[in-house]
Amino acid sequence: MANQVEQTLIDPLFESLQKERFVTIATVDFETKAPNVSAISWVLAKDSSRLYFAVDNRSRIVTNIQNHSGVVINIIANESCYSISGTASVKREKLEGVPLKLALIEVNINEVRDVMFYGSKISVEPAYEKTYDPQAAAKLDKQVMDAMREA
């Protein structure tokens, strides 16, 4: 049985992407032209057809996107694993209202594919914790997510 393919985010994914969470992003490396995968957490579904995420504006992710706009974001949510492919661009080189130099990236979604292998479901979603000052981390996370919502 083929996995489901959508052109926009389904409601459970949209809801999952309203708060900071662990996802991975694959870009095309600007030097090697090979896939490059990174983990990020500041990601937000702006609507059902667009995602925003924030990364350090010196990140290889930014350079890769400036050279090849195709990206895939992988998220584990809704008891499954999804591949969200789209076209990315740097919306803002510096996200306002945040003390770090973060670029705001916009992804226009082309396809949302359930890529979980047949006959299985995710029973526990990935969890992580910040390894620096929890209060400073919570404050920064709020600043970044609020700035992306306002962008």
Results as ranks from 00 to 15, higher is better:
55 V>H: 03
19 K>C: 03
114 D>S: 04
136 A>C: 03
37 V>M: 12
46 K>V: 14
80 S>T: 07
106 E>H: 00
140 L>M: 11
148 M>A: 08
137 A>N: 08
45 A>L: 04
137 A>Q: 05
47 D>H: 02
104 L>A: 09
36 N>Q: 14
61 I>P: 03
106 E>V: 00
94 K>T: 15
130 K>R: 13
129 E>Y: 12
44 L>P: 05
50 R>L: 06
18 Q>V: 03
19 K>I: 01
130 K>F: 13
47 D>A: 02
97 G>S: 02
69 S>W: 03
70 G>M: 07
59 S>P: 05
122 I>S: 15
75 I>N: 11
31 E>N: 14
6 E>P: 00
149 R>T: 11
130 K>V: 14
137 A>C: 04
42 W>Y: 11
54 A>P: 01
41 S>D: 13
71 V>Y: 03
128 Y>Q: 12
130 K>Q: 13
49 S>L: 00
10 I>A: 10
4 Q>S: 13
115 V>I: 10
55 V>Y: 03
76 I>R: 10
147 A>I: 01
78 N>E: 15
3 N>K: 05
55 V>G: 05
65 I>W: 04
60 R>K: 15
148 M>E: 11
17 L>E: 11
91 K>W: 11
28 V>Q: 11
123 S>F: 05
5 V>A: 09
78 N>R: 08
151 A>H: 09
53 F>Y: 13
8 T>C: 07
115 V>Y: 02
43 V>R: 02
42 W>K: 02
64 N>L: 01
108 N>H: 11
36 N>T: 07
151 A>W: 07
7 Q>G: 09
15 E>S: 12
98 V>Q: 07
145 M>E: 04
53 F>I: 03
89 S>Y: 12
24 T>V: 03
72 V>W: 02
78 N>W: 11
27 T>S: 08
88 A>I: 06
127 A>D: 12
49 S>P: 01
135 Q>C: 01
65 I>A: 04
10 I>M: 05
119 G>R: 06
7 Q>S: 14
53 F>G: 05
114 D>Q: 10
104 L>R: 04
39 A>T: 14
71 V>M: 03
25 I>C: 06
81 C>E: 14
11 D>Y: 07
122 I>P: 08
113 R>V: 00
74 N>A: 11
54 A>R: 00
110 N>V: 06
10 I>P: 10
63 T>C: 06
88 A>R: 06
13 L>K: 01
132 Y>T: 13
94 K>R: 15
62 V>F: 04
21 R>L: 00
87 T>S: 10
145 M>C: 00
36 N>M: 10
40 I>A: 12
73 I>W: 02
24 T>S: 13
139 K>N: 13
139 K>D: 15
124 V>F: 10
92 R>K: 15
93 E>N: 14
108 N>T: 14
118 Y>Q: 13
32 T>H: 06
119 G>Q: 08
49 S>Y: 04
12 P>N: 10
127 A>C: 06
45 A>H: 08
16 S>K: 02
31 E>C: 02
32 T>M: 01
7 Q>N: 13
99 P>R: 02
41 S>I: 00
87 T>R: 06
43 V>A: 06
